[in-house]
Design a protein around this nucleic acid. Sequence first.
RNA 1: GGUGCCAUCGCCAAGUGGUAAGGCCGCAGCCUGCAAAGCUGCUAUCCCCAGUUCAAAUCUGGGUGGCACCUCCA
Length: 466
Amino acid sequence: MHIFDSVQKTKRKFTPLKEANATLYVCGPTVYDDAHLGHAKSALVFDLLTRVLEANGYTVTYARNITDIDDKIIKKAIEQKKNIKEITDFYTDAFHTEMQAIGVKRPTLEPKATQSLEAMYALIQQLLDKGHAYKTANGDVYFDTASDAKYLSLSHRIQNEEDKQERIESSSFKRNSADFALWKSVKDDSVTFDSPFGAGRPGWHLECSAMIEKHLAYKNREFAIDIHGGGADLLFPHHENEAAQTRCATNHALANYWMHNGFVNIDGEKMSKSLGNSFFLKDALKEHDGEVLRFYLLSTHYRSDFNFNTEDLMHSKKRLDRLYRLKKRLFGLAKNEEDTAFTKSLLKSLNDDMNVSTALALIDEMISNANETLDTAGKHKQLKRDTMANLTYIETLLGFGLKNPYEYFQFGVDSATKEQIDTLIAKRNEAKKAKDFALSDSIRNEILAFNVNLMDTPQGTFWEKI
RNA sequence: GGUGCCAUCGCCAAGUGGUAAGGCCGCAGCCUGCAAAGCUGCUAUCCCCAGUUCAAAUCUGGGUGGCACCUCCA
């Protein structure tokens, strides 16, 4: 398979550091608020990546951190008069629930910053020992960017001299404006940790490097891990700094491949608090099936920016509906081996830097072909079993079509309404039997008022929520 | 100001040197009591200009128009 490396800016063949294994680290959420659609997108992209890697036979070790030390968390705790752990536990649980709703599997490891402090101390000490970090008069420890010849090689930035001078004056403790905190000394009575460098809190960038060393890193290879992922905004400064820390403190570079997913905008606007609740995943999940959100958010290439809007989402849903209608036609049937021309070409397109668009086009084509054959040769057993195999393959590789197809089409309809609809359908069928089409049509209009579609089939009359 | 990305049918969106995938919408037809669903058919020469090439949406240069990062951020 090939993936686009956002540091080398080219598609590269994926060659693992250790045969048949793949190690992946993705920057996870800071748990101080509800997950928004951007968190969902990032989690979905790398969930898909692990599925594709696994489909290629790799054993994937996937770590996604939980940042549970952060100024914003502390601020929230003070505002809500709760302790830090209440806040972080609450939002961590919510994150897990919502990710599950959109079909994101749990990573192999979910290290928390609070459980990785020793690894952070070790990293700081190594950087101090090697002369890549320095302590300041007020007790902070900074990374010395001037000591790292490869600094900015990740993001391909050029140090801006004017900017450099300007900021040095405003921060008397740093040697260089680009230097970033490894340890921030905190003297007040808020949340602090007693480190060998005094009481304080770790710098944000440090956490990821430390967790990778502790949980994932190969010890004697050129790179600590195979793939490092995250949102496009993290390339600089976060990933640049992570890479610098690891490179300077250890004997290996951080990652062989870097992957960055594009941003999610809402109705053409950058997500912001001013958009109200419209960008929280939990709110989107009240309106739409999680799998529809998954399908929609994954429907365009992961590196492109994504413009979320309800109209496109509904169009996308119609595409997923086709998959579920085919599943309805085959519901409960046995399947053959999942090794067809279709499954091969599906994996092939995803192996090309996760080309989901091509994959979806293949799925559409498979659905049309299957429907056509089913229409003309309904007893084609072999085709049915192959189609079932194809659907199962789509479920595991892409996470689409996992639900009961009848329940899928009833999203958001309460049981009382369902009963009313069923009663009306029974009445309508009686009218139809009596050839009283005026009556049956008027009953249909009553049913349509529930915002559902009706469809008469040889197996009976079914309804779908629109 | 620095760095980088993008511009393909009404909308969403692949393709990145060999003569434009797919979905939604629309139109016509088959099926249906009528619908819905399903199926079939139809619907773009790729922002503009110049160049390279036997051949360009795809490469080069110039324009125009969007956007992102450079501060916490998925």
